[in-house]
Each structure stands twice: as structure tokens, then as C-alpha cells.
Design a protein around this nucleic acid. Sequence first.
DNA 1: TATTGTTATACTCTATAACTATA
DNA 2: TATAGTTATAGAGTATAACAATA
Lengths: 162, 162
Amino acid sequence: MTNETQTILPNGKASRDISDTTLRDFTGYTVRRVAGIVQSDVNRALKPLGLRLLSFSVLVMIVDNPGLRQAHLAEALSVERPNLVAIVDELQRAGWITRNPDPTDRRAHALCPTQAGQNLYNKAVEVVQSHEARMTGEMGGDERAVLLTMLRRIEAAGKSSA
Amino acid sequence: MTNETQTILPNGKASRDISDTTLRDFTGYTVRRVAGIVQSDVNRALKPLGLRLLSFSVLVMIVDNPGLRQAHLAEALSVERPNLVAIVDELQRAGWITRNPDPTDRRAHALCPTQAGQNLYNKAVEVVQSHEARMTGEMGGDERAVLLTMLRRIEAAGKSSA
DNA sequence: TATTGTTATACTCTATAACTATA
DNA sequence: TATAGTTATAGAGTATAACAATA
């Protein structure tokens, strides 16, 4: 019986040629690396506007769906309700959105953009589009569509197994 | 001149049909959602083994590259050096790896797997392979290869613009 | 009873500055 | 001087329990 705690010593390979083939073959590992790189790039691009990927996503959803409730927004973005509060606070404090009484349910807040929020949305979408071009510029529109389709298939598989 | 703080009121759409087309057309947003879903699935799968995606990644790199230094490992995984310390501590405390003196540099630690670490690696790779099949099972091997290639192209574009 | 928004809390991942011991 | 590992710390993002107001 072998000793479980015995160290397996290195072979003679030079220390600089590192093999990461086992990891890079796992889609999940690669997706996570790419997500990190893409997120920090888009955050850098949005910073001058006072937004980051998550607050941008919330602003976009509110502009595209004025009157949206926080619970529906949370579900659409796959964010837990409590984690949305601070972001909505932030956008409201900046004067980009308002929390309004929902006419059909006094518990709920109907989230609406202000004119300033609408203007910021226009600028931010442009910024994110040029970020998108930077990240996926070398692939054609067809390839980009294929990539999005495959990612959405993984998303669907992940959700159904959750 | 319009009032910047004026609220734009909702149109007459039913509150339940939420449009997320603006967001879902951004690769970065979709990649980030998918990364979250995939990561929580793989973490759930690895939990019984005492591993997460990140600690699994570190174990794999050490088994595949025995004698690896922490700085090289950090660079290969795109993790900041300080953030690796706790993970290496954790794997060492569990008896899966050891920190050994590097024969060529007394500042450095040569990271090596133990026999227990090698055994865990074998089990964990199997677990992650079945997770992988669950996530990408509906696409063929060719499609999966295309997906990985496209993701790596985005990674390269992101790194060069960083 | 259930749901909406909220507070509090905790855990993971990430990012930076600064220390020590070596090189 | 610069580098390897480390400490301390702070910021995002994420997850859960529980409360008041309302359905």
C-alpha cells in the first residue's frame, strides 16, 4: 500500500513550459476566464459614464421595460432580489431612474428611467458596442451569432440541471 | 429644453413580457451569465470532493506540472499571486500537495502533488468531465471545439487590449 | 399564507500596497 | 535593484434568513 502523503517529485521538464491542456479543454474553465477578461474590459469602458456591467444591465432593462418591478428585474437578470437594492439605489441617487408607486400593487415599485437615464443609455450602448467590436471584431457576424447560440444552449442546459 | 429629471412613464405593455434583447445581443453579458451558471454547476459537483472550480484548477495545474512555482501558477491561471496563497494553503492542509524547496532558488516553493492529491485529481477530473457532458452534451464534439476556439479568440483580443 | 422590497450578514473572487528573504 | 511568497485590506458579486407592509 502506498503512502498517501508521499510527495510526487517533478520530472525533468523545464519549469517555464507549463501545460494547461487538461484545464483548457473544460468549457467551464475557459468560459470563466473569458468572462473575467470581458467584464474587466467593459467595466473599464463604462467607468467614465459612472456605470459597470451590472448597473449598465439594470439601466438597460429599465429603459427597455419602463414600469418594471424589482422582482421581475431580478429574475430577468438572474440576480437575487437583495443584491439589486443597492444597484437600484445607486441609479436612483444619480438621477437616472425613479421608483414609482405601482398602480396595481402597493407593495411594488415601478422602475422608470428619467430623461437623463435615457440619454445615458444611448451613450452607454454606444460604448458597449465599441467594446463588443474590440472583443469579437475578428469574427464575422455569422460566427458571432453561432457563438451566442451555443452559449445560450449551455445556459439552457445549466438552468434545467439546477 | 426637456427636464432631465422627468420620469418617462411606462407604455401599455403587460409587465410580464420583459424584453432583454438589447442585453442578450452583447456577447460579454451572455458570457458572464453562462460563466455564472456553469461555475455554480461545477462547484456543486466538486463540493463532495472538497474542491471548487478554482481549487480544482490549482490541483490540476500542480499534478500536470509538478515542481511548479506559485508565481508561474498564478500567471498560468491569471490569478494574482496574493490570491493564490490561501488556495495553496488549503490544498496543503488537506494533504493533497506539498510546498518544497526549489533547488535553484531559495525564495521559491516547488509545488508537488501527494499520492492523495493524485488520487483526488483522478476522481475530480471524472466529476468535471460528467459536468462538462451535462453542459455541452447537446452539442457535438466539433461544435464544442468551435466554441472553445471562439472563446479563446475573445480571450486573446481582450488580453491584447488590456 | 404568500409576495415585495428591504436589512443584515457571510462567503467567494478579485485587486493593490507593502513587507521579508532571497537573487 | 528586482523577484517570490506573504500579509493585510478593500471592493465587487453572490447567496440566505428574516422583517414590515401588503396581497
